[in-house]
Simulated scan of single mutants.
Amino acid sequence: MAEAQLQQFLEKVRQLNAFVELTETDPALRQALRDCEHHHQVVELASRCGFEIGRRWGEPPQPGAVSTNLLSQPCPPQGAESCSVLVRGEGWRLERIHSCAATTPGDQWYDQTEHEWITLVQGSALLQFADEPGARALQQGDWMLIAPHRRHRVVATDPAPGSVWLALFWSASCAG
């Protein structure tokens, strides 16, 4: 195997591992993966999250597959959100999350093992923490740090064109 092919293979493995890691921290995504009935649905789900796991070695990326503009992506369907990993390193990843009139189901809370720093790049949102009596209103430019295992949920995000977030996740081992 030539070095270029080896690098393509290793990148695909990295993409697969990143997708698996994301499904382990996002219960809704894990359920969506569980609901897939065949390989093509898994590839499409991974693609909506920013991973290209279906491409064969040596195939070029699809035209326009990668955008460097945070606000140029189409809005997801109402009630949904799309996630893309923009960049990652050892023990951390930066995600773009685009929400459209989305909410976390009423009986569900995010309880992540990672640190999470978020900022709202576009739109507004209501974010509820289990240890606070009311939801926090966030608007464009607001940011916050969410400690590991601090249970939280999204109460509301804007309708189209939606709310766009940047979320930086890192493990305790990187917090040094």
Rank of each mutant, 00 (worst) to 15 (best):
L6F: 11
F9W: 14
L10K: 09
L10Q: 10
K12T: 15
L16F: 05
L16G: 13
L16C: 15
N17K: 11
F19Q: 07
L22C: 04
P27I: 07
L29P: 04
A32H: 00
C36N: 02
C36H: 02
C36K: 03
E37W: 00
H38K: 10
H40T: 07
V43M: 09
L45H: 12
A46M: 06
S47H: 09
R48F: 03
G50P: 09
F51S: 02
E52H: 15
E52M: 01
I53P: 05
R55K: 15
R56S: 13
R56V: 01
W57C: 15
W57Q: 13
W57L: 15
P60N: 11
P60A: 13
P61W: 06
P61C: 06
Q62A: 15
P63A: 14
A65D: 11
A65H: 12
N69S: 15
L70Q: 05
L71C: 08
C75I: 06
P77L: 10
P77V: 04
Q78C: 08
A80M: 08
A80R: 07
E81C: 11
C83Y: 03
S84T: 12
S84A: 15
L86Q: 09
G89M: 06
W92Q: 03
H98F: 10
S99G: 06
C100D: 04
T103I: 02
P105C: 11
G106R: 10
D107R: 06
D107G: 07
Y110S: 11
H115S: 01
H115P: 00
W117Y: 13
I118R: 03
V121I: 15
Q122S: 03
S124Y: 05
A125V: 12
D131K: 00
R136I: 14
A137R: 09
L138T: 09
Q139C: 14
G141K: 12
W143Q: 12
M144S: 02
L145I: 07
L145W: 06
I146P: 04
A147W: 01
P148V: 05
P148W: 00
R150W: 00
H152V: 01
V154F: 14
T157F: 02
D158L: 09
P161H: 06
S163F: 00
A167F: 08
L168H: 07
C174K: 11
